[in-house]
């Protein structure tokens, strides 16, 4: 998709967000409405030149700006795998415990992203998790999700 189309769609998105912000803001109590109304209206206002410029480029057929923009996602497979691993990590974190989940997360995501040296992966993971444990559990004593095998 060209940058012109992206500018057009992002301009429209900002126009809508601005309009909704201002529309919802008008109902706020007294002076609490000033900034929501102002920020929403200004956002819609600043979206207009973006929409105008991109639509004019599209209608006239002028290249203005990057004709072909960089891809929205360079490598969808790796991108989605990383996001998926993050989501699983966040979901399991409170149930399994911080240090166990984090260790498994590092091991799995490293393998998914193409690291094929088990000794390096395990070595770095152990050192990293031990350092985190030393700092957060022993020195700073920050409360983190308890390990499943320690929970009573």
């Amino acid at each position: 998709m060209s940058m012109t189309y992206r500018d057009l769609f992002s301009g429209l998105a900002f126009l809508i967000i601005g309009a909704i912000t201002a529309w919802m803001g008008k109902d706020f109590y007294d002076d609490a409405a000033y900034v929501p109304l102002g920020a929403g209206s200004l956002m819609s206002l600043f979206a207009l030149p973006l929409i105008w410029r991109s639509s004019r480029r599209l209608l006239v057929g002028s290249p203005g700006g990057q004709a072909v923009a960089t891809a929205l996602v360079d490598h969808p497979g790796r991108f989605l795998a990383t996001l998926g691993c993050c989501l699983v990590y966040y979901v399991t974190l409170p149930h399994i415990g911080f240090y166990t989940t984090s260790a498994v997360f590092v091991l799995v995501l490293a393998a998914v992203l193409g690291e094929r040296r088990p000794k390096v992966v395990v070595g770095i993971t152990v050192v990293f998790i031990t350092l985190l444990y030393g700092l957060f559990a022993m020195v700073l004593r920050r409360p983190l999700p308890v390990e499943f095998f320690l929970a009573s």
Binding site: C85, F105, V106, A111, L113, E115, V121, F128
Partner: peptide, 11 residues
């Protein structure tokens, strides 16, 4: 390596 820098940074 990148494959380890990504998960450790996320943790």
């Amino acid at each position: 390596p990148t494959a380890l820098l990504v998960p450790t940074t996320l943790v």
